[in-house]
Structures are given as structure tokens and as C-alpha cells.
Amino acid sequence: MSEIIETNDLQKQYRMGDVVVEALKGVDFTVHEGEFVAIMGPSGSGKSTLLHLLGGLDLASGGEVFLADRRLTRLRDTAITVMRRRHVGFVFQFFNLLPTLTAAENVALPLLLDGQSVKESSARVTETLEQVNMGNRAGHMPDQLSGGEQQRVAIARALVTDPEILLADEPTGNLDSSSGEQVLVILRRACDAAGQTIVIVTHNPTAAAFADRVVFLQDGALVHEILGGPFDVSAITEAIAHVNV
């Protein structure tokens, strides 16, 4: 299997006046094509920061990110954007949807931005919405949806371009266990059937158990990983206990 994501000594510092927060302190991280990876770690350990850098949403302070053999850190912003639009789906922890667009329009956004017409995109949009069980809510506005429903629409938007890579920050954070499981099944299927590469950030051992590999982040550094998933939930909790010791 070839490497589709690779980081070398990836660093990120946030500077606020005199205070420097080291969110990532030199992370070497690799993801293979078609792999499903979960990132776990305590709050503030740098999980979201890492995911943002992988998706080219933020600029690294040092080190390199390679995405599908392209060195993101060298590309210009427009190139990164187009790359993200076509090859990467991203689901945020918060604020995912445009409040003035319907669910369907939110999902269609990456396609429309890429120059498709509404007509061209509509079949694919309906299909993706159905995939996340939101087919009957296509015409609703975000403020008419629950937090979990909004999250599912966001996942549909990330999947709509059929991206090689899907990056999701706490995709099940707002969901009850059964709809959370639905989402994870969707992601797992995307990985198995379509060969998509999936990286999720999660606090939930049940969610992490769906992954092929779980990596643990602490204070901005990778401290542990377990291989050979899908896992038993107990394997995950054991690993968490191991890291915390």
C-alpha cells in the first residue's frame, strides 16, 4: 500500500503576544491509501490542529505535509484549495454549514464551486444525502436541524466529491450512539468499498474501534499507536489506560 498522507517533523505554534502555545511538536505521521485511522488524545493535545494541517486548512510552523505525493507546504493557496476541493473531504468539529443554504445546497457546495451546474450535481447530492440518512431533509435550513443532523449533512458534503481522503473532526461527537454508529458504518463502508482513506479525530472508544489503526496524541506529539483494527472496544480502552499511565 502506498502512502497517501505523510508528515515530517510537523510543527505548529500559536503565538499570542509573549505566550507561545506549542500545539504540535514535530509529528511524523503516515497514512496509507485505503486506511482508516483514528486519532485520539486528551483535549488540547493537538488533534484538530493536526487534522487542519493535513487538510491544508492551516499553515504549519515547521516541517512538511505530503498529500497524495504533493508537498502541501510548497503549494500556493489556490492550488491547495483546488486540491482540497477535489481530493479531500473535511468535517469540522463545529460550524460546518452555511446558515443561508439548505441541507442539499450545503452538500452541493463543493461541486458547484468546482463549476458544476445544479442540475449536474443534483443526482449525486441526493445519493449522498441518502447515504447519511438525510434524504428526507434535503430542503431544510441548518437552523431547522439538530446538531447531529447538521453533522450528518456535513459528512455528506465531505463525501459528495467522492474524495480520496476524508478528514473528520469528531464526526460522532454530537450524535447518539445509534446514529453515531450509522455514521461510522458509512465511513467504514467508504473505506472498504470505495477504497477511500479516512482519518477521524475522536474521544469515543467505540468510534475508534472502527478504525484499522488508532494513534494517540499527547501534548502535541504522537505517543502510541495500535494496529490491526477493527478493534474490540476493550482494546481501545486498554490502550487509553496505557497512554495515560
Binding site: 493557496d77 489556490t78 484549495t81 476541493r85 473535511f90 460550524f95 452555511l98 464551486l113 458534503r157
Partner: peptide, 16 residues
């Protein structure tokens, strides 16, 4: 600005 951020994350260029 949040809206612009979401647009950017969904693949909109600055120009768009």
C-alpha cells in the same frame, strides 16, 4: 467571516 471560512474549507478559493 465564519461563513467565508466554511466556504474556504469546502473548497472555495479566495477569489471565489
Amino acid at each position: 467571516r465564519r461563513e467565508y471560512g466554511v466556504l474556504r474549507a469546502a473548497g472555495a478559493t479566495r477569489r471565489q
